[in-house]
Amino acid sequence: MMTTEESARALQLTPDGQLRHFLTLDGLDQSLLTQILDTADSFIEVGERRIKKVPLLRGRTVVNLFFESSTRTRSTFELAAKRLSADVLNLDISTSATSKGESLSDTLLNLEAMASDMFVVRHSRSGAPHFIAESVTPGVAIINAGDGRHAHPTQAMLDMLTIRQHKQRFDGLKVAIVGDILHSRVARSQIRALNTLGAEEVRVIGPSTLLPRDVESLGCRVEYDLKAGLKDIDVIIMLRLQRERMEGALLPSEREFYKVYGLNTDKLAYAKPDAIVMHPGPINRGVEIESAVADGPQSVILNQVTNGIAIRMAVMSMAMSGQLAQRAATEAEARV
């Protein structure tokens, strides 16, 4: 029986180690993550040109399959695909086929028949992109745009790009992730990326009700106290808190959460003086973070948007490259 690591590797990489799907950071090694960051650097330069477009995916069709709507994430994927010269089809499935009773696999088989080359998938179920890559459409590159509580690997990688731009390295870095870890696919991917890229320490800070069981097994330390947790920290990542957490008896109130875990100027002073503050957005001001901090000199929240497009261009072109290599290999095999 394969471990998470082995199965993620086998599914995402071609036999010679090229990326063909991008579903999770599990199973991807440091050199591959670094290659993604380096390739994204080149795309950032493309974004500064008069014509911000390269012909890599010319003639290819990318379908944005959002089973859970998110205008913001979908827009960055759409822009990334267009800047790679792909044809882009946006399908908001949350309001169409599956709600009419058509099964996920039937919907996808129809789309595959439309000669799609890549699906960008967001789904409320953990593992849905895996399922699609594995059993539905083997010839199509699948990019995970967030699945349940499992993974949001492009978001995590764009955060890594931001960290590298400001800190130039990962070794020796101490990073704190604050808030609702339990429900966060972003946090899981970030913890994984930071461990793979060689960060010295990852701390998760939040109340027990918002931490998964055995969270240390992901490669992090737990702190319940924000001030103590921020000591010696180079990078602070604040997570978004969803309103519905109050209903499930996970938290008493937004006000109490802000009092204990909200990042304000006073608490920020406990981190290193040159610590940067990140937030995957959208921000709840006065719930996770004080406006003075979100808009302050240590905040790098806006940078993250530019990086998002570059990371997505990098991952899409690399995965397409791997798929094409595999198609070529399959065709060569068929000729023999």
């Binding site: 953990s126 593992g127 699945d147 998964p212 069981r213 097994s217 992901l218």
Partner: peptide, 15 residues
């Protein structure tokens, strides 16, 4: 099972 795998894969656990 609410344990190592649910934590890793973000699955809904039954403790």
């Amino acid at each position: 099972h609410d344990g190592l795998i649910t934590t890793r894969l973000g699955l809904m656990g039954i403790p």
